[in-house]
């Protein structure tokens, strides 16, 4: 069994190593800025995880990153690189908002939320399915097709928004009905008062658990991962590789379709053009740092949530772009250290 523990250890060491390496780089940057790194980090932590308002805001920022990371990780486990999260999340969020806005007021609260969720998932899933279908049927690469679809979907949604769905003089849809609102966490935990953290976070955690169960506990997940590791062996064993590719991309897109849940059902209550600012792409970083595992994704999303909120906190002392740089360095370090750490460990034997 110590072999298993070692495996888990390696999975954790790589991201920790990457974060530490990133901290060293950012120390240098802070020093160049003639500030004390310790002071900045203290400020950052005090403003985020060491006060209740900070925690609430971190949870708010973590929620979409969990969905985004799960979307990338899910496809990755089937050997697919979904970088179309941005398009999928736009479609998903837009549909969520439209459903929420046009549901009858009398609909029960639970049902309203379920319908919005389902709509977002299916709409995002449809956008994910297209490159999956193209890959399965024609062999064209999903990376190219997901990127290209991003442009198409964004333009299409803007067209729909501007032409049919916007509230005049604005760039957002009309508000969703109040029964489709997700409760703020502060209703249950008063300490989180005045933060935007909502039940969307709980849904995100539940989704991570569901993803874990699907991938590692079901026959379907067993087949998906077999395709991800070795599609030829999977095909030889009678697994329908093409179907797996299409299903995986659709589910990945569906997960991305839920990224905007937090925003539409828990915060603004409408869809607005340009609300995402790259959340779909951040999923790649989250999945990478989280080693494509749902637990890792949740932890990594939380870390990026802290950094994102922390950027606002330290903005008074150093530019918040410092945090953007820190995030970028973390990503580069994860990518670069994956093989390095393995080598070091192998040598230490």
């Amino acid at each position: 069994m110590d072999k298993l523990n070692k495996k888990i250890l390696i999975e954790f060491i790589i991201p920790i190593f990457a974060v530490l390496l990133a901290l060293i780089f950012s120390d240098i940057l802070i020093l160049i800025y003639k500030e004390s790194p310790l002071k900045i980090y203290k400020l950052l932590l005090e403003g985020t995880i060491f006060n209740s308002y900070g925690i609430g805001q971190v949870i708010f920022k973590t929620t979409p990153l969990i969905f985004s990371g799960l979307a990338v990780a899910f496809a990755f486990r089937t050997g697919l690189f979904n970088i179309g999260g941005e398009g999928q999340l736009y479609m998903g969020t837009f549909v969520t908002a439209v459903i929420g806005a046009y549901l009858p007021d009398s609909i029960p609260r639970f049902l309203a939320v379920i319908l919005c969720l389902l709509g977002g998932f299916l709409a995002g899933g449809l956008i994910g399915f297209i490159p999956g279908f193209l890959k399965a049927k024609t062999g064209s690469h999903e990376v190219i097709n997901t990127i290209m679809l991003n442009f198409i979907v964004l333009a299409f949604i803007n067209y729909l928004l501007v032409t049919y769905f916007r509230v005049p003089e604005t760039l957002h849809t009309k508000e969703i009905i109040s029964n489709a609102h997700l409760a703020r966490l502060s209703e249950f935990i008063p300490a989180l008062d005045s933060t935007y953290a909502s039940l969307a976070f709980v849904i995100a955690i539940l989704t991570a658990i569901v993803v874990y169960v699907i991938l590692w506990k079901t026959k379907f997940g067993y087949e998906l991962r077999a395709v991800g590791h070795n599609p030829e062996a999977a095909a030889t064993a009678g697994i329908n590789v093409k179907k797996c590719i299409m299903m995986s991309m659709a589910i990945s897109g569906g997960l991305a379709g839920l990224i905007g849940l937090n925003y539409v059902l828990g915060d603004k209550y409408y869809f607005e053009e340009g609300f995402s600012s790259g959340l779909g792409f951040m999923g790649i970083a989250v999945a990478l740092l989280g080693r494509n595992h749902p637990l890792g994704v949740v932890i990594a999303a939380f870390l990026f949530g802290v950094l994102s909120e922390g950027g606002l906190v330290i903005n008074a002392v150093v530019p918040k772009e410092l945090v953007d740089i820190l995030q970028a360095i973390v990503i580069i370090c994860v990518v670069a250290s994956t093989t390095e750490v393995r080598k070091i460990l192998a040598r230490g034997k």
Partner: peptide, 16 residues
């Protein structure tokens, strides 16, 4: 074609 090398033995023994 025979194995998923990243799978543990028990998972390869049921492949297919």
């Amino acid at each position: 074609r025979g194995l998923v090398l990243e799978y543990q033995n028990s998972d390869n023994l049921i492949l297919g």
